[in-house]
Design a protein around this nucleic acid. Structure first.
Length: 300
DNA sequence: AAGTGGCGCAACCGCCCCGCC
DNA sequence: GGGCGGGGCGGTTGCGCCACT
């Protein structure tokens, strides 16, 4: 047996709120507060709405100092880093962004930011133009940007490497977070070790994964024997995603010892089919190098 | 002009948490 | 301690708008 509904579903109005309903709800709460009981609130005001609906309307739209749309780069960055840390706990993320609601951030993530970060399959130029036009129109329609911004290009395409296998999770004591998977989602690049060194003479076999360092293209070889940069080496960055390592830094990046550099355990093992996944990638190394150059030129 | 598909957003649904009795 | 019920939350859906065919 399910629990009783919070209101009489047959006698409540659903769908978009009218201006009159908004006014009623807003003026009442501003004068009397919620009274600590949302369920009873609509009856007091004379609204044929579910209490939960009233709460949602107030929190997401009517309460003061709410911002809609127009997310800044800084807000993007905060959302991304928090999402990586805590996942889809939108209320907590929203608490870090004054004026933003969890619903707004959730929508923003699902409709735009996710695409920006995950990238999409490469589409032909025509399709990208189409999407840019449509998005610009949509933004104009909702009044979030002015016309001068309507021609902003579609989200840049992000090179996608397959995510690390889930059994890495077992190697983490704290929680379910899989750093490689998450870093990959956010654009961090990992290269299969055999790309750099095929002879395995140093004890590293195929199927080991290196973070692709900033400014480094997949065509550049890395000499494992001399791959001994310290933790403070400025080259040791993952295209700007190093701030996302958190507690898993050593597990990803490994440690230095008297023999030189050792990859972290999360990089130094993988299932045999991972290589096959890599081979299935349609994007070639050349395309990726081009992508890097574009990123570099955009960064200037 | 009509149909179609993509997109973004508001709102709903249903589950879980937690305080109260 | 256990049940109840309101609040809170994340996932999902519905709808309007627009461009394109």
């Amino acid at each position: 047996m399910g629990r009783a509904p919070c209101c009489d579903k047959a006698n409540v109005k659903k769908g978009p709120w009218s201006a009159e309903e908004d006014t009623k709800l807003k003026s009442y709460i501003e004068q009397h507060g919620t009274g600590g009981n949302w369920i009873a609130l609509p009856q007091k005001i004379g609204l044929k709405r579910c209490g939960k609906s009233c709460r949602l309307r107030w929190l997401n739209y009517l309460r003061p100092n709410i911002k809609h749309g127009g997310f800044s780069e800084e807000e993007d960055r905060i959302i991304c880093s928090l999402y990586l840390s805590i996942g889809s706990r939108w209320s907590i993320i929203a608490a870090q962004l004054p004026g933003r609601t969890d619903n707004d951030i959730k929508n923003y993530w699902n409709t735009r930011l996710k695409k920006k970060l995950f990238g999409k399959q490469r589409k032909d130029h025509h399709q990208q133009q189409q999407q840019a036009t449509r998005r610009g129109n949509a933004l104009r329609h909702h009044g979030t940007v002015n016309k001068s911004n309507s021609a902003i290009p579609y989200w840049p395409q992000q090179q996608q490497f397959p995510v690390a296998p889930s059994y890495y999770n077992n190697m983490l004591s704290s929680d379910h977070i899989n750093p490689i998977e998450n870093l990959s989602k956010f654009g961090a690049q990992f290269m299969e070790q055999s790309v750099y060194n095929n002879n395995n003479a140093n004890g590293y076999g195929n199927g080991y994964y290196f973070p692709l360092l900033q400014g480094q293209s997949s065509s550049q070889m890395v000499d494992l024997e001399n791959y001994d940069m310290g933790f403070d080496d400025p080259r040791r960055v993952l295209c700007g995603f190093e701030f996302l390592y958190g507690d898993h830094h050593n597990q990803i990046m490994g440690t230095s010892n008297s023999h030189g550099y050792e990859m972290g355990p999360l990089i130094s093992s993988c299932p045999s089919n991972y290589e096959a996944m890599l081979q299935d990638l349609s994007t070639t190394t050349q395309e990726y190098d081009t992508h890097l150059k574009i990123m570099d030129s955009n960064a200037v």
